[in-house]
Design a protein around this nucleic acid. Structure first.
Length: 229
DNA sequence: CCAGACGTTGTT
DNA sequence: GTCTGG
DNA sequence: CCAGACGTTGTT
DNA sequence: GTCTGG
């Protein structure tokens, strides 16, 4: 679930919308087809508690992993168990983040094939997935920073596609998610409520988005329908 | 005590 | 079928 | 998430 | 890192 998304917002607007500083050499050009293992934008807290925009690899690698190659398998984390799973609980305590997005893609079973569907909010502004990040150090001392997107139960609109959906946070909850102190972590459960279906819309799009090498507005192009479809 | 394992989700 | 790469 | 690779031996 | 097995 939630294995592909887009972020059509540039660096400057991201910094404004999320009230975040741009980290070292942070730069982002609009993307229409973001896939696992690629660099993605996260908002996280610096030591001084200021928000910072960074680029991290999508697919969390636990700090104790021997080989980071399998990162693509941990692109999502179930919110219900994120506090106990060995791969996520450390990050949940101290390394929560936001992943800005403007839409995400799901694939609906359509007969023998799979139909890509774009899900977006009825707002122009980018929204935020709830995420976690982690640091992995290779034998030579090089550091790899990775992240994952939390999932929750699907709302009524998305239930037709899947039983899960990404956790989308309301702007008023950004600060709580990022700063909540450890003793109060259980109170964050309220943030994992499925996002309101009323503010979402689904668009069947062309299969162009299927291939991760494809990029650009064509990824959002609605499927053309014949008169009698 | 040490050694060694541990990944996750969502799909069918 | 299953794993890897993007 | 999807796309695409994945092969082994023995012989030349 | 933390838990399990020995």
């Amino acid at each position: 679930m939630c294995g592909r998304y887009n972020l059509k917002t540039g660096s400057h607007e991201l910094a404004a919308v999320f009230a975040a500083l741009r980290g070292d050499q942070f730069h982002w050009e609009p993307r229409y087809n973001i896939a696992p293992t690629q660099p993605v934008v996260v908002v996280r807290l610096r030591e001084d508690r200021q928000r910072e925009l960074s680029l991290l690899r999508w697919g969390l690698v636990p700090s104790w992993a021997k080989d980071p190659a399998r990162a693509a398998s941990m692109i999502n984390a179930r919110s219900e168990t994120v506090d106990t799973k060995p791969a996520f609980r450390a990050a949940f305590k101290r390394r929560r983040c936001l992943l800005p997005a403007t839409g995400f893609y799901e694939w609906r079973q359509a007969g023998r094939s799979r139909q890509p569907v774009l899900i977006r909010l009825q707002q122009a502004e980018p929204f935020a997935f709830a995420g976690l990040w982690e640091t992995w150090t290779d034998p030579a001392g090089g550091e790899l920073e990775t992240c994952t997107i939390l999932t929750t139960a699907a709302n009524g609109l998305l239930a037709g596609l899947h039983d899960r959906m990404p956790v989308i946070l309301a702007p008023d909850d950004y600060e709580d998610w990022l700063t909540c102190p450890e003793p109060e972590l259980p109170s964050l459960h309220r943030l994992w409520t499925p996002y309101s279906a009323k503010q979402m819309e689904l668009v069947d799009v062309e299969s162009y988005v299927n291939n991760v090498r494809n990029e650009g507005p064509e990824c959002e192009r609605p499927v053309s329908r014949g008169l009698f479809d």
